[in-house]
Structure formats: structure tokens, C-alpha cells
Amino acid sequence: MVIRARRQLGLSLIELALVLLIVGLLAMAATPLTSSWGAGSDLHAASGQLNQAFGHARAVALRNEGGAVGDDPAARIVHDAASRQLRVCRLPSGPCTDPLWRSTLPSGVALTGPFPILLNNRGQLAAPVSVQLAKGGMTDVHTFQ
């Protein structure tokens, strides 16, 4: 009589459970690392938006459509915390209902600084301005001169 060896097809339930346990542990270990990537990416995007706002405000100030003289403001950057928007406005004061440029900051990014930021008709600030971006324990400080 010939005895044939049975070949095993597939995985047993215990082997499958062990593989799932190992994959779960690796995923739990990687979660904190990948969440910091998201915060860093959002800060980088907000930093780019802030630089764009400054560039647009400088262009508006140099055009000087309002006829500002000397160190009078010719353009301003406004931050609306409620809607998380950055806006570039032509008028040196009053509401910015019709902005020339606007952008919404990524969700969760906090922006603090001396707003509004005013630029004269030469596209210059009266004094250097520092603005801080923060999200998830990470911060980024921008100084405009």
C-alpha cells in the first residue's frame, strides 16, 4: 500500500491571524510618522500662499491705482480668521469686500501676525513684519522686509 503525502493548499487560520497582527502593528507604528508629513505639507502650502499674497500686494502697491503719496498705504494684506482667507486689497482701510486676490489656507493651519499688512506706493513695508504659521506642533515663521 502506497501512502501519499497531502499537500497543503492555502494558509491556516492561525497563520493568517499572525500576518494580520504583524501588518496591524506596523501600521500603528507608522501612523505618527505619516501624520507629521500631512502637517508639514499643509504648512508648506500655507507658506506659499503667504508669499503669493505678499507678491500680489507688492504689485498692487507699485501700480498705485489709489494715488497714495509718500508712506501712505497703497495696498494691504488682510487675514480673515473666520474663513481662513488671505486677501489682497487695494484700499488702505475699510472692509475688503472685493479683493484683488484671495486664497484659503489649508484646514487646521493657524496664522498669527500683525494684520493688516500695509505696503506703500513703492511696495515697501514701514517696518519688518513677522508672521507665524502653526499646525500640529510644527511652526514656521516668515519675516517680510
Rank of each mutant, 00 (worst) to 15 (best):
L21I: 10
L50Q: 07
A61W: 05
E15I: 12
Q52K: 03
Q8E: 13
L43S: 00
I77P: 00
R90L: 08
S103W: 11
P99N: 07
L16H: 14
F54Q: 09
V69W: 08
L21T: 14
Q52S: 09
A45S: 07
V78T: 01
R7N: 15
Q52L: 13
L21F: 11
S12L: 13
G67L: 03
P99G: 05
A68N: 10
R7P: 13
P92M: 03
S93G: 08
R58P: 00
L33I: 12
P92A: 04
Q49R: 01
A68F: 09
P99T: 06
V60C: 12
L91S: 01
E65P: 12
L11H: 09
M28I: 01
A81R: 12
E65D: 15
L20P: 12
R76S: 03
P106I: 08
G55E: 02
I14Q: 01
R63D: 12
T34K: 05
S103D: 15
R7F: 15
L18T: 01
P32N: 03
R63F: 04
A59K: 11
R7I: 14
S35P: 08
L18P: 02
G66Q: 12
A61F: 08
L43W: 01
L91M: 09
D72R: 15
L13E: 06
T97Y: 10
P92G: 00
L25Q: 01
L26Q: 05
D80H: 00
A30L: 00
H56G: 02
L18A: 10
G70V: 14
A27K: 04
I14E: 05
Q85S: 07
E65S: 14
A45P: 05
P106N: 07
R7C: 11
L62N: 12
W37A: 14
T34G: 14
G94D: 07
L16T: 15
R63G: 02
S36V: 07
A17R: 02
G24Y: 01
Q52W: 02
A81Q: 06
N64Q: 05
A75L: 12
L33H: 05
A59G: 11
P106G: 06
L86R: 01
L50S: 09
M28W: 08
Q49G: 04
P92C: 05
A57P: 06
A61M: 04
Q85H: 03
P99F: 08
E65N: 15
L9G: 12
Q52E: 11
A45C: 04
H79M: 06
C96F: 06
G70H: 10
A53V: 04
R76Y: 09
D71M: 15
A29W: 00
G38T: 13
A59W: 01
C96Y: 05
G38D: 13
G94Y: 08
N64E: 04
Q8Y: 13
W101E: 02
